[in-house]
Design a protein around this nucleic acid. Structure first.
Lengths: 259, 259
DNA sequence: GCAATAGTGTCTCTTAGACAGTATGAG
DNA sequence: CTCATACTGTCTAAGAGACACTATTGC
């Protein structure tokens, strides 16, 4: 009935183990990155195709073992740089945060590996070049993932990352990180529609964004041309100084997520 | 200018390291727990006083190395059981979730240790018994922490846990996890006031809680007595079936948290 | 009786969202 | 011209919060 009843019996081996981690079989720590971007009006995810077993030929998140003198976030940024082949300037505009850690014994058949997953929001970036441990690297639409085999527990990590991303757009201004430094309200709305997966009312969205203090600030300039299918030139905005949106832009509640 | 420009040069050592984590110095993984409870109208935190160096005599979060065939969450639950000396029944009512991972090189002077921190919400539990590696274990009021030396980066972890707790009360029904299975609206309000650190309007809170679908459900019974200083008997409630509160109970926005 | 608490009624202000309407510019 | 888009005005419904009020109980 109760799996925790016996744990207080401290025998010598357990006692030693409390003090000497080397008494346990080795644990490795990796950093993986769920990197998202918006391309052609669809949400894309950076994936690599594994060249080596286990899961050779499967698609997987970019990532690797954390280096000795490297912070977790720095490790994630390094892996992202390696996989995208991007230098610091472009990478500096990418938002990166810790997502969660995954440590099921058996999630990697080789050994005990704890993965510290991260979440990245990137503006539209060039196609990646495959690294040494991958056959292929690409931005893939998230809608195409169900038909592809994913390595390890990466499907679960991606699900968690997508839900975190949808949630972050509600109460932070991070949607701007999917865009160039200057953007129109229409482009910002397209990010929300893409990440949330449904259309928003253009007029209400416009007024709402401008009413949240610090979300965006006007540049005083407008686009050179109107939209591809006509319409007036749109005013250009930059990200404001708010770190949180108040009031937030809430998604309409879906009953199934509540219960 | 750019710290990531050189990383694509894959020399042999790095190549091997990608495949063999044993090429790196050992990394250890611990699970730590920020366990919160409400006692006497104040928020309390489970801490142990370290018996051994490093940080001997300092207060620290309960935790320890993750066991070989143990999930991270199971490890945190085991550590919590060991430190509180509680069996499964009481422990089953404790909410436990992953908080974040902390892996700064140098956060532990002995070796590279990545800590996967967890957050626990507990009803008022008995005083803990000190384990083998601690001089002392106690529920301490969080207001008393600033005057005590904390080990490692545990002050930062605690800060993150407290902020997560405050935030979780907004959009989840987890405040009920600080209470017995049956509770009054007044007791629930006391939890919010304690965790958020300011008073709430009793009447508005009452109506709001009852208006959120699935937050609480009535038991049909009332308390045996009125309050200690008088007043009518209060109706008793159980936690409802909602996993998210909609609409949420939002804290008033504080300007400094936004910018 | 007095004080404290439970629970309800009511009013105001803010916000979300529906809808309409005007102006602009590409094709 | 046509039509899509930018942006604004207006109305409604819902919710947050202030305040008032009644009922019930311990002391």
């Amino acid at each position: 009935m109760n799996a925790f009843e016996g744990v207080r019996t401290v025998n010598e081996q357990e006692f030693l183990a409390d003090y000497d981690p080397r008494a346990y079989p080795a644990v490795a720590v990796t950093v993986d990155v769920v990197a998202l971007t918006v391309r052609d009006g669809a949400l894309h995810l950076l994936l690599i195709r594994r060249a080596e077993p286990p899961y050779a030929g499967h698609w997987a998140l970019p990532g690797g073992f954390v280096h000795p003198d490297e912070d977790l976030l720095a490790g994630a940024r390094r892996e992202l740089a390696e996989e995208t082949g991007l230098g610091g300037e472009r990478l500096g505009r990418v938002h990166l945060e810790q997502l969660a850690s995954y440590g099921d014994p058996g999630r990697d058949p080789r050994m005990r590996i704890v993965s510290v997953a991260h979440l990245a929001f990137a503006p539209d970036l060039p196609d990646p070049a495959a690294g040494s441990d991958a056959d292929e690297a690409a931005w893939l639409p998230v809608t195409a993932l169900t038909s592809r085999p994913l390595a390890f527990d990466h499907a679960r990590i991606i699900d968690d990352g997508l839900e975190r991303a949808r949630s972050k757009l509600e109460y932070t201004p991070l949607a701007t990180r999917f865009l160039d430094p200057e953007f129109t309200i229409g482009e910002l709305r397209a990010v929300y529609e893409t990440v949330w997966g449904h259309e928003l009312h253009a007029g209400n969205f416009h007024r709402k964004v401008l009413s949240v203090p610090g979300f965006v600030e006007g540049t005083g300039t407008s686009t050179e041309r109107g939209g591809a299918r006509g319409g007036p030139r749109a005013r250009l905005y930059r990200a404001g100084d708010a770190r949180l949106l108040h009031p937030a832009l809430l998604r309409p509640a879906r009953e199934e997520t509540i219960r």
